[in-house]
């Protein structure tokens, strides 16, 4: 268990990793990676029951995480590496030919910690429900976590999965929405407004927890609440308010950096706002 102060230091380093990886690759998705960085840090360091040294893709005997919003891979890879799933130095290979750190998560090259491929949006929630059903069949009491983007919830399959899980009593599943309000083409509300997300998920039969995805005390409170709601016949959705590009002043709160890499000057400017806390890769 890390203290909230330690979690903050880790997530600042994760943000540095994101900026450096995306700048070096000259491509990638820094905006959503930075909005989800605190949630993923808290999840992997303080919430999930997992062990990088005994991890296997089938997730037996551990909690499982699936990143449905695959474009958040820089944040995901950084957190996995910092937790010990693979060498931190490998972050420098992101998006390069032959890398295990594909642009979007892949299981083909055997990167430890990756449970399922993602990138084409709207599919990870269904896969997470399948893993959760598998755990029930195996009487494995561990939980399944999945992260979706709010823009991703425009995909129809999300709502197929929303119907399926409560119907089948999947109550060992905690889904998290990185609710940053932005997508490539603009504000989510202006593209295809999601309306009242809380009411929607509740109407589909989910327990809902809301929280601030950049306040570690609140993130840990929300996770604790979500975990307490598992095992009661219903899946849990955490709606976590975040800011796209959070952590760097000129990247925060805009869709401009959804899928665009900074140039070297912008990178240096961003890194000057992010302290090197754990040592760069």
């Amino acid at each position: 268990m890390a203290s909230t102060e330690e979690l903050k230091r880790i997530s600042v380093q994760v943000r540095r990793d994101i900026i450096r990886m995306v700048t070096a690759a000259k491509s990638g998705h820094p905006g959503g990676s930075m909005s989800s960085a605190d949630i993923l840090t808290a999840l992997y360091y303080n919430v999930m029951e997992h062990n990088p040294s005994t991890w296997t893709r089938d997730g037996k005997g551990q909690d499982v995480f699936i990143l449905s919003a695959g474009h958040l891979s820089p944040a995901y890879y950084s957190v996995l590496a910092r937790c010990g799933y693979f060498p931190v130095s490998e972050l420098g290979t992101f998006r390069k030919l032959g890398t295990r750190l594909q642009g979007h998560p892949s299981v083909v090259r055997g990167l430890p910690g990756i449970t399922q491929a993602s990138g084409s949006l709207g599919q990870g929630l269904s896969a997470a429900e399948g893993v959760a059903l598998g755990k029930k069949l195996d009487n494995d009491g561990h939980l399944v976590y999945v992260l979706v983007g709010d823009g991703e919830c425009e995909e129809g399959q999300i709502w197929e999965a929303a119907m399926f899980a409560p119907h089948h009593g999947i109550d060992n599943l905690i889904a998290i929405t990185d609710w940053n309000g932005q997508q490539i083409d603009g504000h989510v509300d202006k593209i295809a407004g999601l309306g009242d997300l809380r009411s929607k998920w509740e109407a589909f039969g989910w327990s809902v927890v809301e929280g601030n995805g950049h306040d570690f005390d609140d993130i840990l409170r929300a996770f604790a609440e979500a975990r307490s709601m598992t095992g009661k016949g219903k899946p849990v959705m955490m709606l976590m308010k975040t800011v796209m590009g959070d952590g760097v002043d000129f990247m925060a709160g805009t869709n401009k950096w959804h899928g665009k890499a900074p140039d070297q000057e912008q990178c240096d400017k961003a890194l000057s706002q992010l302290e090197e806390t754990l040592g760069d890769y």
Partner: peptide
Amino acid sequence: ANMIGVAAGLAITGK
């Protein structure tokens, strides 16, 4: 669509 994803998840657990 959901059925394919759920099946993939079940397969991940060894089913």
